[in-house]
């Protein structure tokens, strides 16, 4: 981030904090919505009163029943569309979030080196005036350089900007780059970035914009990203969306815990050597001992952090420590949600 931008960010947060202290803004959820707190659960993130304060500025927002923000368990498996709407396409911004001053913030990496939310009020003053620089020195969590013949451009993974370069001109900022598939980058996220960038350029308005990578448990690769945006000056009339983009690559299977990958059985990669390398890595993973939670009724096994465990009855729940391979040999299948 440039010194100029840093100064603006500090100034904006100081101003907002001042408003909070003075009580002029009434009850504020600014603190709860700061990027550093983005990875808390939906229940922790919003109280009932916060939900009441969530922006209702457009007809659509007014007619939408606001839910408890985002819940990964509500997201269906990928089924052919690179993105799906979340919460009726209404973002979880609060009235206090709207500002016509440009700013950008990026969460600190967590203990596993993973990105959190990136958040900005995108204006023309943040947009780039020169070509993008190199970002190759950044190695986001789960990064692998791996190529497949059936991936556009060959490389399965891209260093995906959370907030695209065309919006805030961030180059090699490790807090803004995740390991994402080519498909996530070009089919999932880019269309939304284009729409926001062209709106800002045409109108000179601002767009409040937040991108949050969604990791299951200790996975190093995000299962997807949540993108929220709302145009500020026209109160969502021009831009309003809340979507989840899948971090998948058709024809390629991904081990989200490690970033390992292999050609999906449904599509031949045509590159046996690469498949063998990845299959070897997967075999090692299978032989490694770990703790899983078993559902003896459905014969599924889960990561201990899986959200499905809460719904499991006590009688069907059993803890197991051992190799994944042994577990599969006894007839258990991995949960499709937490992908143990």
């Amino acid at each position: 981030m440039s010194v100029y931008k840093k100064k603006r960010v500090v100034l904006i947060w100081l101003l907002l904090f001042g408003v909070l202290l003075s009580g002029c803004a009434g009850k504020s959820s600014l603190k709860d919505d700061s990027p550093q707190n983005e990875q808390v659960s939906a229940e922790e993130k919003k109280s009932d009163s916060d939900i009441e304060e969530t922006v209702n500025l457009t007809e659509q927002a007014e007619n939408t029943v606001l839910t408890d923000s985002f819940d990964l368990s509500d997201i269906p498996e990928y089924s052919g569309s690179p993105y799906i709407p979340v919460n009726g396409n209404v973002p979880d911004f609060t009235r206090e979030d709207l500002t016509t001053d440009s700013f950008e913030t990026y969460s600190e990496l967590d203990e596993l080196g993973r990105c959190g939310a990136a958040y900005a009020s995108v204006g023309t003053d943040l947009m780039p005036d020169k070509k993008r620089g190199s970002i190759s020195k950044v190695k986001p969590s789960g990064w692998h350089s791996i190529e497949y013949d059936n991936v556009e451009g060959d490389s399965l993974y891209n260093r995906c900007h959370l907030i695209g370069y065309q919006l805030t001109a961030e180059n090699a900022n490790e807090k803004n780059l995740i390991t994402g598939t080519r498909y996530l980058n070009t089919e999932g996220m880019l269309p939304f970035e284009n729409m926001v960038a062209d709106y800002v350029k045409e109108t000179k308005n601002h767009v409040l914009y937040r991108v949050t990578p969604v990791f299951a448990g200790d996975d190093l690769i995000a299962g997807g990203v949540r993108m929220e945006a709302m145009s500020v000056e026209d109160e969502g009339e021009g831009i309003l969306f809340h979507v989840y983009c899948y971090n998948v690559q058709p024809g390629i299977a991904i081990d989200y815990a490690t970033g390992g990958s292999w050609a999906d059985g449904r599509t031949a990669s045509g590159d046996t050597r690469k498949d063998e390398i990845n299959n070897h890595e997967t075999k090692q993973q299978k032989e490694k001992k770990a703790t899983y939670i078993l559902n003896t009724n459905t014969n599924k096994f889960h990561k201990p952090s899986c959200s499905s465990i809460k719904k499991m009855t006590k009688a069907n729940k059993k803890e197991y420590t051992g190799s994944r391979e042994d577990l599969e040999n006894t007839g258990y299948d991995p949960c499709k949600r937490c992908k143990p």
Partner: peptide, 19 residues
């Protein structure tokens, strides 16, 4: 239209241009 013959998203036009 855009490259996919898209016209609208979430009841909003994809883009606009004064020219």
């Amino acid at each position: 239209v855009d490259d996919d013959y898209g016209m609208m998203f979430n009841r909003r036009r994809q883009s606009k241009d004064s020219a």
